[in-house]
Design a protein around this nucleic acid. Sequence first.
DNA 1: CTGAAAGCGCTTACAG
DNA 2: CTGAAAGCGCTTACAG
Lengths: 341, 341
Amino acid sequence: MISENVTIYDIASEAGVSIATVSRVLRGETNVSEATREKVRKVIDRFNYTPSSIARGLTSKITHSLGIILPKLLNPHYAMIFAGAQEEARKFGYTMSLFSWASLDTDAYNPAAMLTERRLDGLIVCVEYVPPDHDERVHETLKALQRAMPVVLIGCVPPWYDFPSVAYDNASMMRAIVGYLTGMGHERIALIGGVEEDRDPRRRDVGYLEGLRDAKLPHISSYRVYGRATAETGKEATDELLESLKPEYWPTAIIGLNDLVAMGCLESLREHGIRVPDDMSVIGCDDLFCAPYLYPALTSINTHQQQTGAQAVELLISGEKKHEIMAWELMERASCAPRKR
Amino acid sequence: MISENVTIYDIASEAGVSIATVSRVLRGETNVSEATREKVRKVIDRFNYTPSSIARGLTSKITHSLGIILPKLLNPHYAMIFAGAQEEARKFGYTMSLFSWASLDTDAYNPAAMLTERRLDGLIVCVEYVPPDHDERVHETLKALQRAMPVVLIGCVPPWYDFPSVAYDNASMMRAIVGYLTGMGHERIALIGGVEEDRDPRRRDVGYLEGLRDAKLPHISSYRVYGRATAETGKEATDELLESLKPEYWPTAIIGLNDLVAMGCLESLREHGIRVPDDMSVIGCDDLFCAPYLYPALTSINTHQQQTGAQAVELLISGEKKHEIMAWELMERASCAPRKR
DNA sequence: CTGAAAGCGCTTACAG
DNA sequence: CTGAAAGCGCTTACAG
């Protein structure tokens, strides 16, 4: 039984106290006599009264609502980040609203206004996949936003080092992947997906090169195929790779920038009659829920997405201004095998 | 440049008008002279002023924020519904916050309070997978909530017919699936997943039986395996099905209650050396983004999840009290084939 | 321990 | 077309 129209005045008059007193018991202040507290509690329960967070927000300046800006949720990677953030926020009594980069594209709509008018207590922004042509505009928007509310970034790229952030250790992940593959004897390793002009100095590209260098392997640029991090890209790029190269120059292992890319890659290889992992190894990154159910089960890097979201919320709430790096974990499955001699 | 501390008073005094006038141009009322409007606009732009939705909400009683209660987002099906709802809400200037059924389990936390104190303008509730033991409690909560804000359901089950809803036509989907399979000569068709005591009178079970009846096929209860709609269930149930029956009694087609179940099913069949679709057909439901990339590519029903979310928002905003049924579409892929004779 | 009063930043009749 | 004033439902000093 919820009564929407009862206010603090109703409770106060019914309990025979002032609204200040009701407010005190509501907020759990200690300087209220046990008797009064009890009396007020009873009335609150009887009326099933819930204070308005709106009115509360007007005076106290804190709204207990957070926002998060994410790319489209089609990639479950972001859904997981969101889920982790929402759950963590809830634990602290905060509500989480989603805003998306897609919205930022619309000029008719002013995202900064929508965000500030909400008077959020904090904002999480995933900057990893901000379209390059929006970079400057987005940066400007965020700097401005930061004056109105704390902002925590997911991803840590220039020119935003002045924002607290929680980021994936992209380069080290990729270096480890290359190490994993070279450890199995692979020497021709392709990497598909990502943009050439990525502004992250520790992007996956970098780890790829480090990994090759670790194994004293040459960098063959034909093996580095750029493109959007989607399954379509994975498929097309793999097609292209296979068709543009004589078989003896084919890579023996392909890394997908993320699992989506790897999925498309598997599909292409299947169509070309190339067996995975017998003829070629494939590895992804993000460890989407479906990775174990692909064929063959996809080896990938678990990036702890839910914890990432939760961590961002913690930074937001604690106000700590640090740069966190998430741990990651290699999930060995069936799609990688030692290179055939 | 965003200034957080400027209020309507600052704008008014700077423009030399009253706050009522500023409020009028803010809300786009027409009864303001062009000259005044222009003057006020200029000041607003110069100060980069954004009115507080909090203060606005206090007086106008409308907060422009909606909520949605969903099961965990691990299943991308829900992420898609959420994405569709968020996008549609945004178009109308509404913000969308996520609440989850998981939260409802925690007794320490009073979900109804969290929802009402937000003074949402509306709430979307996905009731399809409310755990049965929470049924009564949830129903009570929703009835109460409805007194405070409009509620639209996703899914349409008793005892909640008095709520507006947008629902999937579960029975007809499943009937069509069975029809599709019997049309290919299958007569032993298993259905995996779902709970026996489901309260939806048009649940997928019903369509399954209708489909069998359409084809004058017997209902063999060994082929109806209940369980949670997860990949693990799909795998275990398929294992069990195969191991508990002599091969000549194996089904020739298996329906997963959703794609997750079908994924587990594919995995089990693979492990048992049963070829899909040559030896056995498999079909899912929901058409998750990964369905085309499974092996073999999974035939499934596209349930238009994003539109479902969008539709729910429309009902919420329009206030229409109807029960909508979503259209669906069979996506034929490689996992089903005519029965071998 | 308790209350009267001001104030948060808007919207909304009501006058003019 | 414009403004003065009340009110939305709380919190927060300030007194006592």
